[in-house]
Design a protein around this nucleic acid. Structure first.
Lengths: 211, 211
DNA sequence: GAACAATTCAAATGCACATTTGATAAAGTT
DNA sequence: AACTTTATCAAATGTGCATTTGAATTGTTC
């Protein structure tokens, strides 16, 4: 009796990750989630205890699914030059962000705007390793003479571009800013832009340091 | 009798913009705003009718104050080369974003994550002109052969970096992501980074088009 | 198929908060 | 000074929603 119970439980996780991604924690209602999961509101209490636990579980659920679908190294070999590996990570990141069925980043985006603190621990554990890997790659690309601050700034530049795509996607679907970029649909093209734009920025900083 | 009434009204606007910026529309309570404004909760009803109208007025109030403080062209002459004017706009944007007492962008950031639709009209009217100016500058910097999509992408890259600073600032103050970049305090340095990083990206795209 | 556990459900409870109301005071007008 | 408008206040009202409860249903084991 842990096997068959997964039906309702899984439907709840799927509905919850979608709805939390769309509305954030506070503005999502259990009633709405249960309706989409085609179950009764009391099932949240039964399967997860309360809304907060459902939130945590839903994020973890979404994140794991996405990692399976898009490996974070972008499929680039460990032996490839640093620029290649960085490009791979950027493409993977944008692929996950752009995927219609990816919700973990949308939830993180909400968290960044309105921290509930609920995800703090889990994010620290899951996201920080990814961040450290990208920082190491940036250090390699920027050369040894780059300061910690420079590396952080470049990381911020790259992550900012990736998250901006997320926001534009969300704004468009909400029709909040009427006349905004038309074809974000082509996330591949945008990923190539970010790679090119960012590698150029990194090169400029690297060669500046040499002088 | 419009003059003296401004006392309470203004205190409400100041408290409201601050609190809405911090918590977003939904998660801000009238009780909290009124407490900070040192007045009674009924005064919101009296001065603004309801919470939504207060929200609109508070945003407009904050935005106008910030524009007075930081002209959006960054003080760069109309005659300067396009790169210079673009750099000026980036610096101005980041200055406004980084200012502790600037709330309009923080509110926009919240809106992007959780659109209430309430600000749609007002943003369209106030923000779109700024956006069009930057797009025009980008077109100049990228050269005539740049496609509309390329221009949009570059705009997204720049805005993404600026907003990322906002989010990091907010996350830090909320201590949500424990170990995150230490010295965002130096927003000037970050602005110079974004200028350098972005101009390099733009140059790379421009010279690519020439081939 | 009886006994027990696991799961689902409709309805009830309770709380947080926006909004309203009616009373009170202050400012302005004659 | 009487009267009217403008502004503030404490308390009441109503609503939306998370959470609880206890009964009904389904599934499992012997």
């Amino acid at each position: 009796m842990k096997v068959k119970s997964c039906k309702t439980r899984d439907r709840l996780l799927m509905a919850a990750s979608r709805i939390f991604a769309e509305h954030g924690f506070q503005e999502s209602t259990i009633a709405d989630i249960c309706e989409q999961a085609e179950t009764n509101i009391a099932s949240v209490n039964y399967h997860f205890g309360d809304k907060e636990s459902l939130y945590l579980e839903a994020w973890r659920y979404a994140f794991n699914q996405e990692l399976n679908l898009y490996p974070s190294d972008g499929g680039v070999s460990e032996d490839a030059p640093a620029e290649q590996r960085l490009a791979g990570r950027i493409r993977s990141l944008i692929a996950r962000v752009a995927d219609e069925n990816s919700y973990s980043f949308a939830i993180i985006n909400k968290e960044m705007a309105q921290p509930t603190r609920l995800l703090a621990d889990i994010l620290e554990k899951e996201i920080n390793p990814q961040r450290l890997k990208m920082l190491a790659l940036l250090k390699e690309c920027l050369g040894q003479s780059a300061t910690e601050q420079r590396i952080q700034y470049c990381h911020t530049s790259i992550m900012g571009q990736c998250f901006q795509l997320l926001r534009l996607k969300h704004m468009q679907s909400a029709k909040h800013f009427p006349n905004y970029p038309s074809d974000l649909s082509d996330s591949r093209a945008f990923a190539e832009h970010v790679v090119q734009f960012s590698l150029a920025g990194i090169q400029a900083i690297r060669s500046q340091h040499l002088t």
